[in-house]
């Protein structure tokens, strides 16, 4: 039944979004864990394809959750997944935006702002590892990932450029019969 999927999905996306410090990337391992390992809504390959599509499409990176919702439960899944991802942090933003002046003088705020970034770095690298393991099965994939990673690390151009190059290389390699 659909509601058997919608409720756990809403709950998972909601709580995960609430704890996604440092951005949506921090959500990816948890979403992968629940969608592929715990609830088995999709396979590793389907997750990797959804991840790829959500990265190519324009827009905020909440789109991965939107697409998973759409894949798993159609239109209602799309709406539930998107709302569950956006609502908790937007509510927090609303409060933070209105209380910004007070927030900036609060000591706990300054402390948290200073102490969480190292954890965020770890979370983002963990996201990279989880997506890499879902998406990469050949040496060419490793090479493409490393190439894009180096390009992103050293240059500030639009990431769609190295991503397009990677896709082009992948297609050519596929035509030549080794991807």
């Amino acid at each position: 039944m659909k509601s058997d999927i919608l409720w756990p999905m809403a709950l998972t996306f909601f709580t995960t979004a609430l704890f996604s410090v440092g951005g949506i990337s921090a959500m990816i391992p948890e979403i992968h864990r629940s969608a592929v390992d715990v609830h088995r809504w999709m396979t590793d390959e389907q997750f990797a394809a959804a991840f790829a599509l959500s990265q190519i499409a324009p827009g905020p990176n909440i789109l991965l959750m939107t697409l998973i919702g759409w894949r798993v439960a159609g239109l209602s899944g799309l709406i539930v997944a998107t709302l569950a991802t956006i609502l908790p942090t937007s509510a927090l933003s609303l409060m933070a935006g209105r209380g910004e002046k007070r927030l900036q003088h609060a000591r706990w705020y300054a402390m948290t702002k200073r102490s969480l970034p190292p954890l965020v770095v770890g979370l983002i690298c963990a996201s990279a590892l989880v997506t890499a393991q879902a998406a990469i099965h050949e040496w060419l994939g490793v090479a493409l990932a490393v190439g894009v990673a180096i390009h992103v690390a050293v240059s500030r151009t639009n990431p769609l450029v190295p991503l397009s190059v990677a896709v082009l290389v992948g297609v050519i390699a596929g035509r030549l019969g080794f991807y």
């Binding site: 790829a52 990265q55 890499a132 998406a135 994939g141 190439g147 896709v167 992948g170 297609v171 596929g174």
Partner: peptide
């Protein structure tokens, strides 16, 4: 092939950002 490459590249993108 394009999807596999895009997913691999996007994983690399996150690695680069983390780095």
């Amino acid at each position: 092939a394009a999807t596999k490459a895009a997913a691999a590249g996007a994983a690399g993108l996150i690695f680069g950002t983390g780095f």
